[in-house]
């Protein structure tokens, strides 16, 4: 565990910016607090973000870049679309793309 003054899961922190370096395997997420960004360490990233791991251990929560997506696997692959939208190949649609149909009353187009 990091120094006692640091938040849970944090290896190194500063008074103004919260966590700067998380413990191994955790993701650092920059929470906005007015004009400040506070680093917090999470085992999984919040809605709208995905976790990018790298061997150096500075894993980061990174924003999904897909329209209408709540949770994503990577920058351009959505795993959970917003309410009422259909999912196909990692993207979110108002209705299934041509030639695709929803499968057994899920919101997935196959």
């Amino acid at each position: 565990e990091g120094p006692p003054s640091c938040p849970k899961g944090c290896d190194r922190c500063s008074e103004y910016n919260g966590c700067i370096k998380c413990n191994p395997k955790l993701f650092i997420f920059l929470e906005r607090n007015d004009i400040r960004q506070i680093g917090v360490c999470l085992p999984s990233c919040p809605v709208g973000y995905f976790g990018m791991r790298n061997p150096e251990g500075n894993n980061r929560c990174t924003q999904c870049k897909i329209d209408n997506c709540e949770a994503c696997f990577s920058r351009n692959f959505c795993t959970k679309c917003k309410e009422g939208l259909y999912s196909h190949s990692g993207r979110c649609y108002v209705s299934c793309p041509p030639g695709k149909h929803t499968a057994n009353n899920t919101m997935d187009c196959d």
């Binding site: 791991r53 790298n54 061997p55 696997f73 990577s74 692959f77 795993t79 190949s89 990692g90």
Partner: peptide, 8 residues
Amino acid sequence: LQALTLAL
């Protein structure tokens, strides 16, 4: 299966 990571 649509997305798989075996990275790292």
